[in-house]
Write a protein that binds this DNA or RNA. Structure first.
Lengths: 249, 249
DNA sequence: CGTTGAGTTGATGGAACTCAAATAGCGTGG
DNA sequence: CCACGCTATTTGAGTTCCATCAACTCAACG
């Protein structure tokens, strides 16, 4: 497994933008930006691409020349700088922006790999920066999004540092559900694109422990699990658990 | 202890800026920005202030209207949103910028408290943003700093999630030393401004465990500890430990 | 129908937490 | 300057949670 080449600079669909047809247009920041700036979308040279499972969107060390909108699927962002194990830093979901945190640097500090077959849009950074220069509104929104990316890292930190395994898994499921709901993708049932091991690498656990927690949450009647499908049964109890601080029962 | 009022909007020294006299001028981003923009520093309306131990620089929910340069001392940034325990997110050291991550939001998402008596400069956000508008160089540097703040959160995440207690403490000491060195504050010996418990709250451990780790590192001859003073003896071994992944000995 | 990879379940040990007690620093007032 | 008292820190003993190792189930696929 683990295919190798980066997708950024090659294999884009020649397909034109067509943002108006995209189901995510309502929540797509670049699309709104273009609209706000009242300029033709073509100026941004947004391209679409499809990434098969295991393929990298970009790799550590790549030049930073674009960011990405996830249209469908799921991308994991990992740190390859140290150690053998793949440290998962973030899962990017449909409607979310990928690679914002790299924009300050010359080369990517992380690697992003598709956890399942995914579709995304490539937004060239230089063109977008130019757009920012023309519209202060776009620029300040963009600044907010970048700062937001830092906040997400902090939330994960709190989840991992202060909570026990069960609370971590509960919190993970909640945040997944909430984020999918924001972009209108999910109902009461969610399909996990990633494996138990990838979840474990994200939460700082082992896959066996994640599995046990799923079982335990199901036993308590908070969720139902069938392979990669999770159905939310008792949201309130789940929320209570997720904000517990490595105690209680 | 734990005094209450925020320092941001009152009690500034009436003292004028005088950046040229500040020992940190060489590494002070706002000062450089002013210089680059070739405008009088007075425009930024930078004020100095002194914060006694335990006093808040700003609190969660405060309006975001400034960021801060640490001139001396140490400020801990904590998350008060949940749970009883004070979750320490970051220690800001002399020469570093505080509250960057809040700039995207209307109100502060965290609280910052002086861990020891500290001196800092208050940089009004609106005035600074205006300066950014005039100088693209300043703006892009500023963007880099904001993205950098997110990277710091990720580094802490990796330290806490993937390493055991000893490696966390070793990594913490190293990063402290490195950061103090960058700004020319430290030699072979460092004075910790924070208590063992605050370190524990930062590293996701208990104060007893932190203490045991200090003792163990000293026993192995990597450092010497005398109360809040830490002397670095074997940097190489410390670095090896800090990048170990919860194994080895 | 065997193979392969993901997921579940069980048994065991170790790392870190908890509770508890002893000691060392530090500021304060005599 | 010293004694006092407070807090921070260290050290010890027992317990808990999760990682580890290992066996087993299940579904997909040739």
């Amino acid at each position: 497994m683990a295919t190798e080449t980066t997708v950024g600079r090659h294999a884009p669909d020649p397909e034109p933008v067509g943002c108006t047809l995209c189901g995510l247009a309502r929540v797509c920041f670049p699309a709104r930006a273009v609209h706000d700036a009242a300029r033709p979308a073509a100026d941004l040279r947004i391209r679409r691409t499809r990434v098969p499972r295991g393929r990298a969107v970009y790799r550590m060390g790549d030049k930073v020349d674009a960011f990405f909108m996830i249209r469908s699927g799921c991308i994991k962002e990992i740190d390859e700088s140290v150690g053998r194990r793949a440290a998962v830093l973030h899962f990017a979901l449909p409607g979310e922006i990928l690679s914002l945190h790299n924009l300050g640097s010359l080369v990517c500090t992380t690697t992003s790999i598709a956890v399942e077959p995914s579709h995304l849009c490539i937004v060239p950074w230089s063109a977008f920066r130019h757009l920012c220069g023309e519209s202060p509104a776009v620029e300040s929104e963009f600044l907010r999004l970048i700062a937001q990316a830092g906040v997400a890292a902090r939330e994960l930190l709190l989840l991992i540092r202060d909570k026990d395994a069960l609370a971590r898994v509960a919190g993970f499921l909640q945040s997944l559900r909430r984020r999918l709901q924001i972009h209108g993708t999910a109902g009461r049932e969610v399909r996990l694109g990633m494996t138990r091991e990838e979840i474990a690498d994200y939460l700082g656990l082992r896959s066996e422990t994640v599995s046990r927690c799923f079982t335990e949450l199901a036993r308590r009647g908070l969720i139902q699990v069938r392979a990669k499908r999770v159905r939310f049964v008792d949201d309130a109890a789940l929320a209570r658990l997720g904000s517990a601080e490595s105690a209680s029962s």
